[in-house]
Simulated assay, not measured.
Amino acid sequence: MSLRQPHTHVADAAPAGVPAAIPDEPTGRTSFNWPGFAAGLAVVLALGVGAHALTEGVPVWTKGTPFGAVAKSIEFPIYAIVLGLLGNLVLTSTGLRDRLLPGFRTEFFIKTGLVLLGASINFAVIVRAAGPAIAQAVLLITFVFFFTWWVAGRLGVEDRLRALLSSAVSICGVSAAIAAAGAVKAKKEDLAYTASLVIVFALPAIFLVPWLAGLLGLSDAVTGAWIGGNIDTTAAVTAAGTLAGEQPLQIATIVKVTQNALLGVAAILLTLYFTLRVDRGSSEQRPGAAAVWQRFPKFVLGFLAASVIATIYSASVPAAVSSATVGVANDLRTWFLIFAFISIGLEFNAASIRRFGWRPVAAFGAATVANLVIGLGLSLLLFGSFVF
């Protein structure tokens, strides 16, 4: 897409190459690409089955070899992301990727997986972690957002793009960028660029942050809080949490969904700022409570409901029955997360990164480093004494 095209707002259409902006469920409009959706979904499912087979098979196939000991520690997110990236390379080289984009449903898969994850977390853990999670989310989002806004401004990044960058790095990645794009009426090219930049930084963070947490000897709770508060996308947080372990994954998810819950508030504040300061004189209607609800990530409620229902159910049936039921939910969760990580790899689009030069990348990189450092301090302060 050429940057010389007329200014087109996100409200008018979803940007090419940003599948997260596509509704989680196909609409009934005749313009929806059903063949592309079906074929893309088939690719995701096929690669997902392959990732699952590698996860189960590689440790068996390499048993007794020097790689065998390493193979046991390689979790399904690694195979899924690698296969997704390889699939992306093949589809891009054959010219098929853009046609199949409607089938790469990262948001649907990850949100369904997280709702199922709620079924394996005792609600008492969520209640005890809620206070520190809210404090961390508010403090971290506030600091990182304004730091990114300041750095991007110093580097001469245009206001709308720096609003997207600031929201993405401080809140929850692509979803935050989409909400911010609608709030500030950003161009489609800005959203596509920000989404690609988020993925570029999130992919290495999936492996880097758990490794650093182990190197620093952090507790499970602090590790989870650091992962949940600092990695930009919910899918990447889940992948990193999975690599770190079940308890870090639980805390990481609680922290991240707390940040997600603040997404609607951030979008409204951005709307007010751009309406009253940047776009003064605009005749557009001021945002109200309905807009907050519209932007609120509804899967957070599903996550909490699943935890409450599972906690009540576990207290009402024998332990063996409860364990078997949670086991089924965990198996389903694994499959949905595999499909989500496959989709992450398939969605990645490096081409848009080269369009805007080095300044937005430098701002995003500086904010990411600041996010890691401040996030680690807050995680140690707020979750250092947390006990499961």
Rank of each mutant, 00 (worst) to 15 (best):
G224I: 13
V58R: 06
L337T: 01
K72C: 03
V10N: 14
T8H: 10
A168P: 05
G224V: 12
V82F: 04
T234L: 12
G224T: 14
V328G: 05
A135E: 09
F147C: 03
L301F: 15
A367S: 15
S323G: 12
I78E: 06
F296T: 15
V278H: 13
V58E: 02
P360A: 07
P318S: 13
T271Y: 13
S175W: 04
T238S: 14
G118P: 02
R154M: 06
A177W: 06
R162K: 15
A363K: 08
N88K: 03
L380F: 00
T27E: 13
E75V: 03
G384K: 08
V198T: 14
D159Y: 09
I126V: 15
A366H: 08
L243Q: 15
L212Y: 08
T275G: 14
P318N: 14
L216K: 04
P35W: 11
N88W: 05
S316W: 10
F336Y: 15
R286T: 14
F336P: 08
G118K: 05
I121P: 01
A351E: 15
V328S: 08
F386I: 05
Q136P: 00
P102M: 03
F143L: 13
G357I: 14
V237D: 10
K256Q: 13
I251M: 04
G118M: 07
A183K: 09
G182D: 14
F336L: 11
A42C: 08
F303P: 10
F104M: 07
P6C: 09
E284K: 15
I227K: 04
G327H: 05
F348W: 13
S170P: 12
G84E: 10
R99D: 12
I344R: 07
A244T: 08
L376Y: 11
I342H: 11
I199A: 05
H7R: 13
V82M: 07
A366P: 01
V127M: 11
T55A: 00
L332V: 07
E56I: 01
A367V: 06
G113K: 08
E107A: 13
S166L: 04
V49I: 12
G173V: 07
V321I: 14
K63V: 01
T223G: 01
A225M: 08
G302T: 03
A240I: 10
P26G: 10
A124Q: 15
L212M: 14
T242H: 03
V198C: 01
P26V: 09
T311I: 07
P15W: 12
P19N: 15
R29G: 06
A181R: 05
P77I: 03
V300S: 03
P19Y: 12
V115H: 01
A180E: 04
A221T: 10
V10S: 10
V115S: 04
V369M: 02
A152Y: 07
I312T: 14
T275K: 09
V209A: 01
T325R: 05
S323Y: 03
S323L: 01
A363Y: 07
S322M: 02
